[in-house]
Amino acid sequence: MTVDNAAEAKLYRLVYYSRNRVAQETEATAAEIDDILAASRRNNARVGVTGALIFNSGVFAQVLEGALPDIEATFERIQRDQRHGDVEVLQFEPTATRAFPTWSMGFIGRSQKGKHLFGHVTEATGFEAKRLEGERIFDIMRAIAIDEERAPAA
């Protein structure tokens, strides 16, 4: 007797970006960003959510991929986070496969100070968009992040 695998929860992908309410490119901000990333990786690993996150002084953009209840719970946690403002969902739909099977995070900013403060995040995680779809999403996120970056501090 074989049992079909309908119980395997359907995979969803959510892409959003939000205004970064974490103030300026300072050491304190760098520490806070580190906290957010660490917490986010911990939480997401626990519930089997993977994806990508890029940010700079203006914006967070994130891809979340995982089972629907996990995506729903993660999104709800993000929505309740004061540090996010004006969350804009770019994509939310079922997907056959993960475009980001491991976590990717990166700082995308032109300011030297920002690169100095946040550049290690990119180095530590690297970008790993597995498929063309992932690259396309990532390109859009990157474009938004660059547009939304605040004027680099002098």
Binding site: Y12, Q79, V87, P94
Partner: peptide, 12 residues
């Protein structure tokens, strides 16, 4: 806070 998007049962 309450005006931010929700995901419920697969619906945005």
């Amino acid at each position: 806070l309450l005006g931010r998007a929700y995901i419920v049962d697969g619906h945005l």
